[in-house]
């Protein structure tokens, strides 16, 4: 499922990232790539979201979060 549909507090594993090459590369170099675990800190529902990459907090635009496909971890 796209990351944007996740709720605050839920944890995910990134499976794939859709989108153009530049976009993909930038995300990967920031540490978001398939296999990595992310947690949603805040998803207000209609705008950008905040995710956690271990101790780092990253704000992601709505469009970007829609292109990151994840699998929910129980």
């Amino acid at each position: 499922m796209p990351l944007i549909f996740g709720k605050s507090g839920e944890e995910f594993e990134v499976t794939t990232i859709q989108g153009g090459k530049g976009f993909l590369k930038k995300l990967m170099e920031m540490g978001i790539y398939s296999g990595i675990r992310v947690r949603i800190i805040l998803n207000p529902g209609n705008g950008p979201i905040i995710i956690a990459l271990s101790d780092t907090r990253i704000a992601l635009g709505k469009g970007m979060a829609a292109k990151i496909i994840v699998r929910k971890l129980s």
């Binding site: 976009f23 930038k26 995300l27 920031m30 950008p48 905040i50 780092t56 907090r57 990253i58 704000a59 992601l60 635009g61 469009g63 970007m64």
Partner: peptide
């Protein structure tokens, strides 16, 4: 361009 930005503590 979409938002990707690190938020410092």
């Amino acid at each position: 361009s979409p938002l990707v930005m690190e938020l410092p503590p």
